[in-house]
């Protein structure tokens, strides 16, 4: 069975539509894709290109990572980070970036987006050839639209409306044309950019990805304490995503993006989270390559693990 067929089979078994892309970030080029160029609404994954663009802007000397941000009470609510706190918070910009990545803090995300600028971010995406990626708005505005679409009186009730098992409740924020969107392959390209940068601001972002609070999606496919997962999830209703860099010790890093949309509406679907892990493992596995086996520049390409294992 081909890798693509196996990916389809896992998706069918989990009751999800999937878009997957994986590529080696070093050594001989190699990639696996299943609908990797299909635009998908990305929910909180907008914070990933935002963090990389922020670090580029810091590296260019245009932003000060130690600038103090004041996030006052009444900001966007959320389940984690500053968004779940009650009072005014003052924080350095780089720490806000770390919370935005490590716990997908909505309040920090909106503050960083406001400070980096949507217009600047759009230009950054275009400059780096990420033509299938668009960040239209932050978390507060997205949740407001979901609330409007579902007719709910609060964002919490809007989330509950999306989880209705009796009816097929939809929102414009599931639609790649109307929401912040990207492709699995563009998200891997964002990770490749981040892995190519050497400024301390980029190290801050990479470190935050390594400290992501959740390992139930891509991480569940790699239950090995010595395998590094640098990941960022995105979740909204039936959308469950993660983009990550998987690094086995002594091997070249592999970027993988798994974007899913489930048939079931429930908020907690551990089977789907586990399927994301299995999809990631299935896509990453053929791309694994030991560092020592990578060819020196200009030499003959080494044989990949997939070939040696049949």
């Amino acid at each position: 069975m081909s890798t693509e067929d196996r990916l389809r089979e896992i998706a069918g078994d989990a009751g999800i539509s999937v878009w997957v892309h994986a590529e080696r970030l070093d050594g001989p080029p190699g990639s696996i894709t299943l609908g990797g160029d299909h635009p998908v609404a990305i929910a909180s994954l907008y914070k990933l290109p935002l963090a990389v663009a922020w670090a580029d802007r810091v590296a260019a000397g245009e932003l000060d990572p130690w600038e103090r941000l004041t996030l006052s009470a009444g900001r966007v609510p959320g389940p984690t980070g500053i968004a779940m706190l009650l009072d005014d918070v003052s924080i350095s910009m780089r720490d806000a970036v770390r919370l935005m990545i490590a716990v997908s803090d909505n309040a920090a995300g909106d503050a960083i987006l406001a400070r980096t600028g949507t217009a600047w971010l759009r230009e950054w995406l275009a400059t780096h050839g990420l033509h299938d990626t668009s960040v239209l708005r932050g978390s507060a505005d997205t949740l407001r639209l979901v609330q409007r679409d579902t007719g709910a009186s609060s964002t919490a009730l809007a989330e509950r409306a999306l989880a209705d098992v009796e009816h097929d409740v939809l929102t414009s924020q599931y639609d790649a044309a109307l929401a912040s969107s990207s492709t699995a392959s563009d998200l891997c390209a964002v990770l490749a950019l981040l892995w190519s940068r050497r400024h301390p601001a980029h190290a801050v972002v990479r470190d935050a990805l390594a400290h992501q609070a959740w390992r139930h999606r891509v991480g569940s496919g790699f239950p090995h304490d010595d395998v590094a997962i640098h990941g960022k999830t995105g979740t909204l209703g039936r959308l469950r995503h993660e983009a990550a860099v998987v690094t086995f010790p002594g091997e070249l890093p592999v970027a993988v993006a798994v974007l899913t949309r489930s048939a079931r509406a429930e908020r907690h679907l551990p089977r789907v989270d586990a399927a994301i892990g299995e999809l990631a493992r299935t896509a990453v596995h053929p791309l694994r390559l030991a560092v020592s086996r990578a060819p020196a520049p200009g030499s003959r390409p080494a044989r990949g693990r997939s070939q040696s294992r049949g």
């Binding site: 009751g15 097929d168 048939a263 079931r264």
Partner: peptide, 16 residues
């Protein structure tokens, strides 16, 4: 039977 992936079809209302 609902819930099912309905991409590529025109789905109507869910009935219980």
């Amino acid at each position: 039977r609902h819930p099912i992936v309905v991409d590529g079809t025109r789905p109507r209302e869910v009935r219980t």
